[in-house]
């Protein structure tokens, strides 16, 4: 596979503050990349640079080998072959659903245009809504139209700016699946920016984690979840309990015992181990020092709050076997953990 979208050393400075700092990444043809990070880290600015709505101060963007933005070249947004789906959908409020979807197809004859619109209406499950105005649609339907409009001209890349953020859980899951399916079918390369780690982990072929205008880690979802680059990333990707520890004989000595490190460690280092809630094993033990002080039932599993002599831990236990309130326990950690040495 070759680099289809190539971003090199992109830097954007606005009003004296650096929004993007030396951002580089590649996306392969047909791949789905998520840029993951909390809000305000420059994700939207990055997307706008790719689309051509903003000129970076330095660096370059190439799509399929064409330099669309660099020191020596500039391609207008409409000539980049890029489709965008903004957070708010940004439908043309005065146009019907069908006309919105066909908005990017002005250059083709009306027959094929109608066919293409009909195809997208059916894939995005908008049947029967063709003549509605955006104001007459639900939030989920509006986003479906926005996706269909972006895909209709068969762009080389589609850019998704948190398009699922404003929807409720069920709608979101459904729409994500439909969008993923559509992109696969049309083999369109996609870049999604999001602050939702579940969304990024479940949808993407690869993820780039962004913080303070820079990309700090890239990899497959499994990679990133298993081996976060630092404690902040570990915490951002999901709940984790941070235990102080010290490396001795290849093991990390902590208050919950000697744990197997996942990454390479050096004897004598001290730092922190990050343990995921699902990595705790809660053994009922009348002589145990830990006690259950909270319990949140989710059906498929239970989040149990356990107070040990040292700290409070959140652990995930499967529904029927979860310990009850007030129960005494011994806490074990199963499986290897990531260890982050404190810088000397």
């Amino acid at each position: 596979m070759s680099a289809f979208v190539e971003v090199k050393n992109l830097t954007v400075v606005k009003n004296g503050s650096t929004i993007l700092h030396d951002v580089s990444f590649v996306v392969n043809r047909g791949e789905f990349l998520s840029i993951l990070g909390p809000s305000g880290v420059g994700k939207t600015t990055l997307l706008r640079c790719l689309a051509g709505f903003e000129r970076p101060d330095s660096g370059s963007v190439a799509i399929d080998g064409d330099a669309v933005s660099s020191d020596s070249s500039w391609v207008e947004p409409s000539r980049r072959g890029v489709g965008i789906v903004p957070q708010d959908g940004a439908l043309f409020t005065h146009m019907t659903v069908a006309r919105n979807i066909g908005a990017g197809l002005a250059d083709i004859a009306s027959g094929p245009r109608a066919d293409r619109v009909a195809e997208l209406v059916s894939i995005m499950r908008l049947d029967g809504l063709e003549n509605r105005l955006p104001a007459e649609l639900s939030g989920g339907q509006q986003q479906r139209v926005a996706v269909a409009r972006a895909i209709a001209p068969s762009p080389r890349v589609v850019l998704l700016d948190e398009p699922f953020a404003a929807l409720d859980t069920e709608l979101r899951t459904e729409l994500r699946a439909d969008v993923r399916e559509l992109l696969r079918k049309e083999s369109i390369t996609a870049i999604l920016v999001t602050h939702d780690q579940d969304e990024a982990l479940s949808l993407s072929d690869s993820i780039s984690v962004m913080r303070d205008g820079a990309i700090i880690q890239s990899g497959t979802p499994a990679d990133i979840y298993a081996r976060p680059a630092d404690i902040d990333v570990a915490l951002f990707l999901g709940d984790a309990v941070i235990l102080p520890g010290r490396v001795s004989g290849g093991k990390v000595e902590t208050e919950l015992g000697a744990l197997t490190p996942l990454n390479r460690v050096r004897d004598g280092d001290s730092g922190f181990a990050a343990v995921r809630p699902e990595n705790f094993y809660l053994q009922p033990d009348p002589a145990g020092q830990a006690i259950v002080t909270g319990r949140q039932f989710f059906g498929h599993d239970v989040l149990v709050t356990v107070t040990t002599p040292e700290r409070t831990i959140t652990a995930r236990a499967s529904g029927p076997l979860a310990p009850e309130m007030g129960m005494k326990l011994t806490v074990w950690v199963r499986g290897p953990v990531n260890f982050y040495a404190r810088p000397d």
Partner: peptide, 8 residues
Amino acid sequence: DVAQSIST
């Protein structure tokens, strides 16, 4: 933005 990406 959308209009810019759609029309020349």
